[in-house]
């Protein structure tokens, strides 16, 4: 069901470092998972609303009130790289 190209694309979208040697393995595993879940298609669910939340609540909203934020120091404390109060990552060159 899934081929190497699909895995390559999914890996790119999910930002996962999958080696080319693993494509085949994941293609067959993913196909298995999907065909397992596909069993659900045997049930007629035309009249069933999809469930996105289970609480049944609506409009639980925030009233536009400002609350204290983290300090700059706290906000950056787990950053792998930082400089002058900024988070830092390796250069993104497509801009």
């Amino acid at each position: 069901m899934f081929n190497k190209e699909d895995i390559k694309k999914l890996a790119k979208l999910a930002n996962l470092p999958i080696k080319e040697s693993e494509y085949e393995k994941f293609a067959s595993q993913l196909s298995e998972i999907i065909s397992y879940v596909k069993q659900l298609e045997r049930i007629d669910s035309n009249q069933v609303e999809p469930t996105f939340n289970v609480t049944g609540l609506k409009n639980i909203n925030w009233g536009d009130k400002v609350e204290p934020s983290l300090t700059q120091k706290k906000s950056l404390q787990n950053a792998k790289m930082q400089r002058n109060g900024f988070f830092v990552t390796k250069g993104i060159f497509n801009e």
Binding site: K65, E67, S69, L70, G85
Partner: peptide, 21 residues
């Protein structure tokens, strides 16, 4: 006044970086 999904101030212009998070 506040951000879309939290209580941090949305008035970020000219603020110290990463101080409204």
């Amino acid at each position: 006044l506040s951000k879309m999904f939290c209580g941090c101030s949305a008035d970020y212009f000219g603020q110290k970086p990463n101080s409204l998070t």
